[in-house]
Design a protein around this nucleic acid. Structure first.
Lengths: 229, 229
DNA sequence: CAGTAGACTTACCGAAGAGTAAGATTACGG
DNA sequence: CCGTAATCTTACTCTTCGGTAAGTCTACTG
């Protein structure tokens, strides 16, 4: 047994290894079911090291969220800053997002399915990340709206669309994972068709109108639904 | 102190009271952070009663999910079965959904933010509920698509749209909660405008095309983005 | 080759909380 | 008014797990 002693590594390196392990375990088990002993073991280290470096289980989780969140935001932002119309940039950002969650499933799970539960500091960190992405998207939508000053839409509408968009993208990560034939690009294309095309119509004044609240027949207003373009 | 003794009630009634209390506590604290003692106290009863009637903490949670889930599905279905076009029925169902989550916040939180974590029996129950709602929506979208046999779209597309729609609705419950000016109807109207209008366009062959992958200028295809309607 | 700082471990503590044993209390049919 | 079945409680047990005390070991510096 030559390697009874584990190699000593500088703190900076060990910390990352611990976070690596934590992301995997948290992702697989969830925050509460995850046990610190398992994380330390997977990191090839003993438990007190985790507490020495990360302070507490909560601190460890926050570190995971922060690191993975930054990676995700960076991926989105770097794709979406390339010049072009808001439309093109949204396309690029969404594609990058779907690619990220495909390639880093664990990271995404940690950032994702852990909203309720979890004490204040953790939810704060998660909310921060979410807001960060949403802010990017919202800016793009605002730009898109601003190109048509006559649309009558405003920041409130952009904010609504952002939530819908982010929520849809969120849910579609599962769909993507379960359909091997689909790619980040194909999913993004579908989304753009569903949502952006609709928005463009609305910007053009081509809106949907609810049926008469009493009973009457469909009350479609200015909807040229009749023939294909 | 006259009422030292608590009134005795038949099992059927107490069970519902226990579930009432559990929904509130689970909703507020989350599954793991919730403590059975608190639930029993809120139900005006001692802890062993909970175990006698519901078996375990997990069984208690499953009972909550089942009851509240059925309420939600019923609300949606009853609104959406009224005759009319798929469009109208989707409108009615979504409105009922948003109304439900507005009026039963606790129920929704229990059904919602508890995906990862939680052992197999619980996730199974949650998945069942979600699938139940999705199936309703998917049927409506398929009907909508079927009205245009020439669109080239199929069940796969309906399924995609369902996930996007459900995910968006999901995320918009938060948005609705934070904007007192909005109502279930107004949110539904916004959604229909964003998504259904877009889908209608796609059905008409008016699709969105991604920019050229290399670098070239925007490669919009058949997108009459030029002037307002 | 000290000596020190930082990496690392073993072995433990204590609290929290799920679940239960054992029985007390009350309603009610006969 | 008695038995019995159901409701309900007090007072535990037992495990799990976050966190720590008290060092040991090794690499590097002078």
């Amino acid at each position: 047994m030559s390697e009874k002693r584990r190699q000593r590594l500088p703190r900076q390196v060990r910390e990352q290894q611990i976070i690596d392990a934590a992301v995997r375990v948290f992702s697989q088990r969830g925050y509460h079911a995850a046990v610190v002993d398992e994380i330390s073991e997977l990191a090839g280290i003993s438990k007190p090291m985790v507490y020495l470096y990360l302070g507490s289980k909560e601190g460890l989780f926050v570190a995971c969220v922060r690191r993975e969140g930054e990676r995700l935001v960076t991926a989105f932002r770097e794709a979406a800053v390339t010049g072009g119309t808001p439309e093109e940039r949204l396309w690029a950002g969404l594609t990058a997002f779907f690619r990220f969650v495909t390639e880093h499933r664990d990271s995404w799970v940690v950032l994702h399915r852990q909203a309720a539960e979890l004490g204040e500091p953790i939810t704060a960190e998660l909310a921060l990340m979410r807001r960060s992405v949403s802010a990017e998207v919202a800016a793009l939508l605002r730009d898109g709206i601003a190109l048509r000053a006559d649309s009558g839409l405003g920041d409130h509408d952009a904010e609504f669309a952002t939530h819908a968009l982010v929520g849809a993208a969120d849910a579609l990560t599962d769909w993507l994972a379960q359909h091997p034939g689909e790619t980040p690009e194909s999913v993004t294309l579908r989304m753009m068709n569903m949502i952006w095309v609709g928005m463009r119509d609305v910007l053009n004044g081509n809106t949907w109108t609810p049926p008469a609240t009493t009973d009457g027949p469909p009350g479609r207003a200015s909807a040229p639904d009749d023939e294909a373009g």
